[in-house]
């Protein structure tokens, strides 16, 4: 349904509420159909954030939890734009990321995977997009890890990405995967996504984002709901 100036959630792009191969959905996905709502609702507005509330160091996950050394692993840059469906940048919105370390271990106290923690790596950070919707993080490439969904189940390398956008209606939490990962074809979370939309979850290796001698670069653009399809080269202001 469309809410305010935002187009409908495109259910040809998003996974279903229950995907039986991803076991946790069986007990947690709603069984009743969603109740459609449209119109000019409060969900067409949302919280705003100013740069003054965000410390720039939180965009560098190789630095924001450093105790006495650099974190272990392959340094990477993950950067891109938050866009609406017309390709226009979403400015000044909050982007949050969290991930496993290079060994495939999360800092979260409930992660019991027998792989080492890194005392110099938390694996979480956040940033605001700039006026053109751009964001950039520096981090460590996350490792794969086993999980209990099915025998010999392994999650592909991924970074969790949360974006608020201009309204509650545009709220999105997703996962960014890496190109060429052989685990993608066996991951029930990735595979729950409609086939045509799966490539949008995979970052692209990008020489232009690579910092010579320091870090390889990956581009990941995030497209949020947005009804106005005016092409970006027409030069219209947001709205």
């Amino acid at each position: 349904m469309s809410v305010g100036r935002f187009s409908a959630r495109d259910w040809d792009s998003h996974p279903p509420l229950i995907a039986p191969d991803y076991k946790s959905t069986r007990q947690r996905g709603p069984g009743q159909p969603l109740v459609p709502l449209d119109g000019d609702l409060p969900e067409a507005a949302g919280p705003s954030f100013d740069a003054g509330t965000i410390d720039a160091v939180q965009a560098d996950l190789t630095a924001n939890a450093r105790v006495n050394a650099e974190p272990i692993g392959e340094r990477i840059v993950v950067a891109g734009r938050v866009l609406d469906e017309a390709g226009r940048g979403v400015p000044h919105t909050l982007v949050e990321v969290w991930q496993a370390n290079a060994a495939g271990r999360y800092v979260h106290t409930r992660d019991q995977h027998d792989a080492p923690l890194d005392p110099n790596f938390l694996g979480a950070g956040h940033a605001l997009t700039d006026a053109d919707g751009r964001y950039a993080f520096r981090t460590i490439k996350p490792g794969a890890y086993p999980w209990g969904n099915h025998p010999n189940a392994w999650r592909p390398n991924h970074i969790h990405v949360s974006v608020i956008g201009p309204a509650l209606a545009t709220r999105l939490v997703t996962q960014m995967y890496f190109p060429g990962d052989p685990l993608l074809d066996a991951d029930p979370i990735f595979l729950a996504t409609p086939r045509a939309a799966r490539p949008r979850l995979i970052a692209q290796f990008d020489w232009s984002l690579t910092e010579p001698g320091i870090a390889l670069g990956y581009r990941f653009d995030v497209v949020l709901r947005g009804r106005d399809r005016t092409p970006p080269d027409a030069g219209h202001a947001d709205g």
Binding site: S13, H14, W98, R110, T174, Q175, T193, A197, V223
Partner: peptide, 13 residues
């Protein structure tokens, strides 16, 4: 332009 980025679970962590 590419369509909406698919949602994925927030996961346990």
């Amino acid at each position: 332009f590419p369509g909406q980025t698919p949602s994925q679970t927030v996961g346990p962590f």
